[in-house]
Each structure stands twice: as C-alpha cells, then as structure tokens.
C-alpha cells in the first residue's frame, strides 16, 4: 500500500495579539491509500489545524507553515499556487465539517449547490450535472431525491444535511475525504447511520478517509489506523487494535481508561489531573510530563522522539512499558 499524503515535519504557527501560537509542532503523518485513518485528541490539541493544513484552508496572512505535505509522492501542497490548489480542493481532497448547518449556503437550493460543485471541477453540461447530483443524493440515502434537490438547507434535519455535505464531498470521487468531527453534532442513532455511510462509500470508492474526532467510540467503529495527538504533537500511532489493547504512551493509556465502558457500573474512573498546556508557551521536554504519573526529570529535560515498537506502531515516551 502506497501513501497518498505524506506529512513531514509540519509546523503551523499562528500570529495572535498575545503572541505566536504553536498550533502544530512538528508532525509526521502518512495517510495510506484506501485506509481509514483516525486522528484523535482533546480540544485544542491541533488535530483540526493539521487537517485544514492539508487543504490549506487557513488564513495565510496571519500564519506561517513549516515542513511539507507531499501529495501522491511528488507535489508539495504547501508550495502550490492558488490556481493549482483549486484543482485539488474539493476534487481530489474534500472535507466534511462538524456543523452541517453552517457548511451549506442557506440561500441556495441543495441541488444547486451540488451542481455547482460538479460544474466547477468537471466539463459537463448542466443537465448532466443535475443527473449526477440526483444520483449522489440517492447514494447517500436521501429520498425522494428529485424533491429534496429543490429544497433549501433549513428544510432538512441535521442528519440529512450531513448526508448532503457528504454527497458534495464525494461528488468528484475524491482520493481523500477528511471528516472533521463530522458526527459530533449528531445524535447517536444518526451518528451510527453516518458512520456506516462513510464506511460503505470508502469500500465502494477505495478512497482514503481521515477521521478527526475526540470520541474513541467513533475510532473503534470505523478506523484502521489511529494517531493520538497531545499538545500539538503525535504521541502514538498504530493499528486500531494495538492502540486499544496495547497502548504504549501514558496519555493513550490514561485516555482509554478514563472513558466509561458499557457493562461497567459505579466505581472510580481513571482521571488525568490538570489541563492541557498553554499553546503560547514554549514546551520543553515531554508535553505530557506535567500530567503524567510516570514523569521523571529526564522527561522534563528533552522531548522524546517517536520510536517504533512492533509493526506500524510508534510512540513517543522515554519510559518503555512492556
């Protein structure tokens, strides 16, 4: 399996009135073809920042990139011109966001927005675009498509709108679909429907999916590979089974243990003391040392590097847990 996206030493720094915010610090990430890759972490850990960098969606006047994002082994997304980016955005790489209500234009009919997407990227007539839009709506489970095509976003429920934004995202058969907390705003029953849909589409089209979430349940449900982020760096990376049953980084261990599991009644949950660090401060040593029960002086002095421990499994911690 070859990789579709290879992120090398990505850094994202934002200028804020109160100083530079290190939103992403030195991330390496490979997204393989045809895989569902999970990126998990707490709010503010930089997971959305990483995802938006892949599509270059940041306001670039107020920020600086470092490192490279290699697309399909030859082009660096970070050095692309706006014209070239337009070719890729929405066509080869597309994204589904958290809130479907704000993703769609409230003043345009759903069908029109879908058509627009297709017409933008492909040389087809309007009639052909409409035909494809209708097929897409049916594919994502919106019936009757003909009627829904003419409706406005406010006439549909949150789950339906999320289906429409998925239809838009897959309109041009993308190679990578980024789902940024795309089920967080939905109810459990609708979440299950949407996750199943994403998985089905992935199997049909063979595309890669990057799932960004803070919910380990979502990861367990659909992902093949997981990267765990903490304070703007990846602390552990591995196949989903390994992460759940054989986590190596103390943060991953604590996080997995702090979630209540079904069938468990009462008793204490494992808690992680303290809060994530301030992003404006420069972090020396391991970022998790402040909250880690295994932290030693060595942890606070220099940052640990990602080390391999088994097939495709890497973690960044100075302690080696058997």
């Amino acid at each position: 399996m070859s990789e579709l996206i290879n992120i090398k030493n990505l850094k994202v720094n934002l200028m804020s009135p109160r100083g530079i915010v290190h939103a992403v610090r030195d991330i390496n990430l490979e997204i393989a073809q045809g895989q569902i890759h999970g990126l998990v972490g707490e709010s503010g850990c930089g997971k959305s920042m990483t995802a938006k960098s892949i599509m270059r969606l940041h306001d670039e006047k107020k920020m600086l990139y470092g490192g490279e994002i290699i697309y399909e082994g030859n082009t660096d997304i970070l050095t692309m011109k706006e014209k070239e980016l337009e070719q890729i955005r929405g066509k080869d790489i597309s994204m589904i966001f958290q809130d479907p209500m704000t993703t769609l234009n409230p003043l345009l009919r759903i069908g029109k927005q879908l058509d627009e997407m297709i017409l933008q990227h492909e040389k087809v007539s309007k009639a052909e675009a409409k035909e494809r839009s209708l097929k897409l709506l049916e594919k994502v489970g919106i019936f009757p498509a003909e009627q829904r095509y003419k409706q406005y976003p406010f006439e549909l429920s949150g789950g339906m709108l999320q289906r429409v934004s998925i239809a838009m995202a897959i309109a041009c058969n993308p190679k990578l679909l980024i789902a940024d907390e795309s089920t967080t705003a939905l109810d459990v029953t609708v979440q299950a429907q949407i996750l199943r849909l994403i998985k089905e589409l992935q199997e049909q089209n063979g595309m890669s999916v990057l799932v960004i979430t803070h919910n380990f349940g979502v990861i367990a449900e659909i992902c093949d590979v997981v990267s765990v982020m903490y304070a703007e760096v990846i602390v552990e990376h591995g196949p989903v089974g390994e992460i759940f049953h054989n986590p190596k980084h103390p943060y991953t261990m604590d996080l997995i243990q702090s979630i209540p599991k079904s069938g468990e009644r009462g008793g204490k949950l494992v808690t992680i003391p303290g809060t994530p660090p301030d992003l404006r401060r420069k972090i020396v040593g391991c970022a998790y040392a402040e909250r880690c029960k295994y932290a030693t002086d060595a942890c606070r002095e220099s940052a640990p590097q990602l080390e391999s421990c088994g097939e495709n499994h890497e973690f960044a911690c100075k302690h080696k847990f058997a």
Binding site: V188, A192, Q193, A220, F244
Partner: peptide, 24 residues
C-alpha cells in the same frame, strides 16, 4: 434496543447487533 445498538463500540473488534434505526 436501537439506542443501545447504535452507540459506538468500546473496542474495535467488538461484534454487535446491527439494529440501526432508519429515518429520524
């Protein structure tokens, strides 16, 4: 039953009943 079945899995290898509710 549907509500319990549609909550995400605790572990990736977990097998569970598929009683996904249709519609809203």
């Amino acid at each position: 039953k549907a509500l319990i079945a549609s909550k995400p899995k605790d572990f990736p290898e977990e097998e569970k009943e598929q009683v996904i509710l249709e519609g809203e």
